[in-house]
Design a protein around this nucleic acid. Sequence first.
DNA 1: CATCGATTTTGATGTAAGACAAATTTTCGA
DNA 2: TCGAAAATTTGTCTTACATCAAAATCGATG
Lengths: 208, 208
Amino acid sequence: MNSTQSRQDNLFLTKIERVMNNQLIQLLNSIVPLSEGLLEFLNAKLENRTYEPGELLLKEGQISSFIAFIEKGIVRSYYYKDGEKITSWFMKEGDVIISVASFFSQTPSNEVIEALEKVSVHAISYEDLQYAYMHFPEFNVCGRVLTEKYYVMSEERLYMLRKRTSKEKYHYLLDKHPDITQRARLGDIATFIGVNLETLSRIRSEKI
Amino acid sequence: MNSTQSRQDNLFLTKIERVMNNQLIQLLNSIVPLSEGLLEFLNAKLENRTYEPGELLLKEGQISSFIAFIEKGIVRSYYYKDGEKITSWFMKEGDVIISVASFFSQTPSNEVIEALEKVSVHAISYEDLQYAYMHFPEFNVCGRVLTEKYYVMSEERLYMLRKRTSKEKYHYLLDKHPDITQRARLGDIATFIGVNLETLSRIRSEKI
DNA sequence: CATCGATTTTGATGTAAGACAAATTTTCGA
DNA sequence: TCGAAAATTTGTCTTACATCAAAATCGATG
């Protein structure tokens, strides 16, 4: 398809075709083909939001009221332990973000979600999501598959933290998520790994 | 309802009523009311299995082919790290057990699941489960809700491991899962917490 | 481009927990 | 019920990492 052809296509896209341009919809559709009704519903309900670096997507004590797909940027979630901010994880473009505990059980969050860069997301509210689960049965498959995927990733982080030296943990991150080590602050990475930032700095300066 | 009444009831239970006596079915039904068709399907497919202490429910390299609900007993899952068995978690009566990564993605397991006591379970195969998801839409809700619940619990364990002293970790376990500290071996608990067993023994002998 | 604040690095010292070893207690099968 | 094996406790020495402190580097802003 040449560029003229593609430009022309855009002028004559049907409503459904335009919805399908959305990265999130493509992800969902790859899990299970979405009905036209569901596509229209999602198109109506998905909201674009942007955040500046340092801005909070979710504050402590708030109920996580929406689920967001990151189009661009990186965020971190953290919680307080003895007054210190402890990073629980980093999420970036292509990831679906929520505070797991708060969203699933609709209780006030212990976690804070913070934009580390300029961030843009597609968001859908808890209520709209529940409505979609109720009225478009195939959407439950998306929910289940995505939950399973993030659950598996969470377990992997759990293994990573257990019975490993600080060096091993940092190199795990470097291997599996090199971009995080580039885009996040040293101190934020350190609390994720569970070492203090001076130790992490020393690990990082070691050759091999 | 007095005991005579209840004994008489048992003699005249319908097929559906008998299925409903199953603890697992009750759990599922409390999440979403199960249709009669689904109840019959589950009744036909659920299989009872028992294991002796030390017996393996899932071996390394096997694909986790069934999901099991524990009726009685306690199991632990572990994986190998440099030849050492590292406990990933303990599960007991009332819990649903699988190797998360292996079952969801149907790939060979890194995890081993081992009975620590005499264990009895209700099991259903991966294929039968997928069939149920396909043909009984309400069953997807059960799958989603249970996955969410176990995901939240897994995240809690993650928080617990991060940025805590060995003492804090042990006391977390003592607080939240006192029966595990009673029923599991010291060495198995130690690898879960991420300390060596001598250290755990010393923590345990401390007052407070 | 000079300056202030944030972030990262480097240094010196203390401590919790690991490693290894051996003694003690518990468990369980013959 | 006895004895062997498994599990747990106790002892001592070593080490990786924490803590506190200060210097160096980076990055945004007037």
